[in-house]
Computed example of a mutant assay.
Amino acid sequence: MRRYGPAVLLLLTGAAILRISLFSELYLRYVQQALRPYLVVSGVVLVGLGVVAAVVRRRERVQDDDHSHSPRIAWLLTLPALALLLFPPPALGSYSAEREAAQRAAQGVGTFPALAAGDPVELTLAEFGSRAIYDSGRSLTGRTVRLTGFVTRDDDGTWYVTRLLVACCAADATTSKVEVRGADAPPVDTWVSVTGTWQPKGALGTDEAWPPVLDAASVRRTAQPANPYEKR
Rank of each mutant, 00 (worst) to 15 (best):
G93E: 00
L26K: 10
P89K: 05
T78Y: 05
L214R: 11
R36G: 08
A223Q: 09
G108C: 05
R131A: 01
T141S: 08
G182A: 12
Q224G: 04
T197I: 02
L79Q: 01
L46N: 02
A54Q: 09
G149T: 07
C168W: 13
P89N: 08
D135N: 05
R181Q: 14
S136A: 05
D207W: 04
P71R: 10
V178G: 09
Y134I: 03
T222R: 07
K231W: 04
R131E: 00
E60D: 10
E98G: 15
T111D: 12
T222G: 08
V180M: 10
V178S: 08
Q63M: 12
R153S: 14
G196V: 04
E230P: 06
D154A: 15
K177G: 02
A102F: 14
A132K: 01
A53G: 07
Y30M: 11
V188Y: 00
D207V: 14
G43Q: 13
A34N: 10
T78P: 05
G182N: 09
E122I: 15
R143Q: 00
G129H: 01
M1C: 07
A167Y: 06
A106G: 12
G48T: 11
Y4R: 14
L22H: 02
K201N: 10
A97F: 11
S24K: 06
L35V: 15
P186F: 10
W75D: 06
K201T: 11
G137N: 01
S136W: 00
L165N: 13
A185V: 08
T222I: 15
D184L: 07
V51M: 09
R138L: 02
R181W: 01
W75P: 02
A132M: 00
A101F: 11
A97G: 13
G110M: 01
G149K: 06
A54R: 04
G137H: 00
D215Q: 14
V41H: 01
T222H: 04
Y38R: 10
D156P: 10
P6C: 02
A83W: 11
V40P: 08
V166N: 06
G93W: 03
P37K: 05
A81Y: 04
V41Y: 04
A81H: 02
R36W: 06
S70Y: 08
T148V: 13
V188W: 00
V52R: 14
I133K: 00
R29P: 07
I73F: 13
V52Q: 11
G108S: 04
V121I: 14
R72C: 12
C169P: 04
V194L: 13
Q32K: 12
G5E: 11
L35N: 14
D66F: 09
L18S: 08
T124E: 12
V51T: 04
R153C: 07
A209K: 05
A132E: 00
W191S: 11
E100N: 13
G129K: 08
I73E: 06
I73C: 06
P200S: 02
